[in-house]
Design a binder for these strands. Structure first.
Lengths: 226, 226
DNA sequence: GCCGCAGACAATGCATACAATATCGTCTAC
DNA sequence: GTAGACGATATTGTATGCATTGTCTGCGGC
């Protein structure tokens, strides 16, 4: 799995089989190999991946809670699929929320906080590969959330459970560019202590990300067959 | 384990053991019997509930994704716990989002839609017990979401994963009253086609619910020991 | 006295095996 | 010919057992 020498920097816990299986299935969905409504048979997946059905079941349960699958007792798991509206709304919401967070950051962050965020933004720009980029980006987001909101719920509700995942940027070509530009705009606004500017930067970035995701997922067939 | 005669009315799919275990653990947390940081040992729970460790593991994974537990590979599951800020932010967000949804409903709903919502609101008021109330309320929320937003993501992000669950109202004394009053206010605004009114109704209701939840969870000890 | 390491113990992760449930085809009755 | 019931098969749900990993205790070295 490790494509680069030091696998996932500052990543402490190793991934269990269940987590790997979940990642695999997420990829299948994002890449369009699994389309909406398609049924996942536990045994097939288990055999295909060389594990037993237990980790497959555990992955399915996690993906059900994340919204990728619909899992009904004794009736199997089906790909939930996404509609164009889902994506639009999802990113509109993210924009709303992160705009609010950005405002709070501008209002409350100390100079040190700004410096720390700045450093992370710079690190993102230098990231040699997409994985490191994603990891750093996640740290930046966490930092913003930590400064602006309760640590757990906002993060859990709006960062974890959805479309943003480690392999997200692989499937959305312009994702990294958008993200970097948005972060840069946010940092400029933050340094000028402009709450409005920070809010706008976040909303704009997330609107663009939404469009990019929609384009990518439409191309791969994840979206559209409603 | 079933302590009440007619288990959950109009529940089509029977609950698997995993789901029952998850519900059990959620209750333990909400009632304060499990406090933040406390570790859950799979075998103990299994024995206590008379099942094997498999359904317990599956429940733990689901609760991890819902945010109730922190589950790390090979290191066990710990109660995540809530901070007062978590609750405040959670409800502020819900207010933001449902305010937006309420606006959209006012702008797009047909007379028939209004009638249907009205019927559900009336049914809520008539509900003889708290379970039926919760079920009807959920149908109403789903209806609103369906009218106003993409069906899946908004619902998945903001309804499912968190504090609202079937046994929520048992733990929050004034929950039902607040909810009914808020729905009534929303319906009045809707009938007058007042987007602002609907928005305000939702925000107000959710602010109050947040306060009620905070009070209840502080009393039970779920919140506070940070 | 403190740090690091080795072994035993405890708890988790996963595979196998069996039980429960759904699904589909077939047969019978009308 | 069609509807309903019954069984065969496919698939999921759960229990048990072993392998793996984390944790704790006690010893030796610095």
């Amino acid at each position: 799995m490790s494509t680069h020498g030091r696998t996932l920097p500052r990543r402490l816990k190793r991934e269990s089989s269940s987590e790997q299986v979940a990642e695999h299935i997420r990829r299948l969905i994002m890449s369009g190999e699994l389309v909406k409504g398609e049924r996942l048979r536990q045994e097939d997946l288990a055999e295909e991946l060389g594990v037993s059905r237990i980790p497959v079941r555990e992955a399915i349960i996690a993906l059900d809670r994340e919204g990728w699958l619909d899992f009904e007792s004794n009736r199997g798991a089906h790909v939930a699929g996404l509609a164009a509206d889902d994506i639009r709304d999802h990113y509109e919401l993210r924009g709303l929320v992160f705009g609010l967070l950005a405002r709070r950051v501008v209002e409350t962050a100390t100079d040190e906080d700004v410096k720390a965020l700045s450093a992370l933004a710079a690190e993102m720009k230098r990231a040699p590969d997409i994985v490191e980029f994603a990891v750093t980006n996640e740290r930046l987001i966490r930092q913003i959330v930590r400064l602006a909101a309760s640590p757990r719920l906002t993060a859990a509700l709006l960062v974890t459970p959805a479309i943003m995942h480690h392999d997200f940027y692989e499937f959305v070509p312009t994702g990294r560019k958008n993200q970097e530009a948005g972060v840069a705009a946010f940092m400029r606004a933050l340094k000028q202590r402009s709450a409005d500017g920070a809010d706008t930067a976040m909303r704009t970035m997330l609107r663009r990300q939404g469009q990019a995701v929609l384009a990518a997922f439409t191309a791969s067939g994840v979206v559209g067959r409603e």
